[in-house]
Amino acid sequence: MDVLAEVLESMRTGRPSSVRTDGYAPWGLGVKGSGFHVVLHGGCWLVPLDGTAPTALGTGDVVFLLEGGGHLLADDPATPASEVTAKWLNPGSPVGTLAFGGGGPRTRLLCGRYHLDRARRPPLLGTLPEMILLRAGGHPELTAAVGLLGSELDRPRCGSESVVTALVDSLLLYILRAWLESSDGSWASALRDPAVSAALTAMHDDPAAPWTVESLARRSGLSRSPFAKRFAALVGEPPLTYLTRWRMSGAARLLRESDVPLSAVAGGAGYSSEYAFAKAFKREYGVAPGRYRRHAVTP
């Protein structure tokens, strides 16, 4: 199981969407939520609404932003946001287009939106920055994915909605992988470290297994104490704490998205007793599993 993809999937609460955006100067677009922007033609400014300095974006640049306080995309930092609405392929479709502004030079953007539950951000994503900026060039796989997505938005065809959803998911992975390969943060170090990565892969492959620090250390090729110290330093918490949180994350997803019996949810999380599982789940989420299921809402 791919640890990076699994961790991202644990945060996602709805399907992504993507809009081809044409802004004609003067133009300004207010954006909230997690997502990405790719400059396909021309240039623009990204202006955070928290007062942080604006960033100039040029053709081929890619930027990913967590929700933060929102931001403005505009031909000039001084241009205010306009009230605009995307034209969707179908009601509820993840495929859309947007054209607005004055009669000046055009900037074409590819904008994607993700629904990420930041309140349940896994420890591995604790060092994920509010903004990842990848300048044009140097990321051929990302460039190829952008081209495919742009093609689907330019000419929607049979199956485009499913293709766009898959490509937007892939684009996020490409963005984060490109950042990961150039980052020295603890998350990047954890996934690159052979010992810690081996333990993470084992837990993600089989979260219900009766893992102990000793058995995970054997998977990592280290003795118990050095492994535990290295794991905690890079991941941000001890191995079994991470395992419990990951088990509860998977259980919460099952409770939200399925009607699987509680006994099966408990078993999938490594608990033979529903009572023990319910106690652990309530400690993590603050409510019993049954109540969580009744009140869970997926956007």
Rank of each mutant, 00 (worst) to 15 (best):
G286N: 05
I175G: 07
R247G: 09
R108P: 06
L171S: 11
M131N: 04
L29D: 01
R135S: 08
H295P: 03
G30H: 15
L72P: 07
G103M: 07
W179F: 15
G286T: 04
V63N: 00
L191E: 09
D184T: 15
G250C: 08
S225H: 11
S273C: 09
R108Q: 14
S272Q: 10
L222H: 08
V3S: 05
A269F: 06
L57P: 01
G270Y: 06
L110R: 04
S17L: 06
P261G: 12
V84E: 15
G103V: 07
L216C: 03
L57T: 03
L240C: 08
P16G: 08
L40F: 09
R155Y: 09
L4C: 07
G270L: 04
H139F: 14
L89Y: 05
P226Q: 03
A5G: 06
W211S: 04
A188R: 07
V287A: 10
P226C: 13
E214F: 05
R218S: 12
P194Q: 04
S272I: 06
A99T: 14
S183Q: 13
T79S: 13
V95D: 01
F277W: 06
H37T: 04
S162P: 04
Y114A: 00
G236V: 06
A199T: 01
P105N: 09
V62T: 11
L8P: 00
L243G: 06
V297Q: 14
R121C: 13
A233Q: 15
G102C: 11
R118A: 10
R253M: 07
T212S: 13
G147P: 05
L255C: 03
G23P: 03
G96C: 09
G137V: 06
T79P: 03
V63L: 11
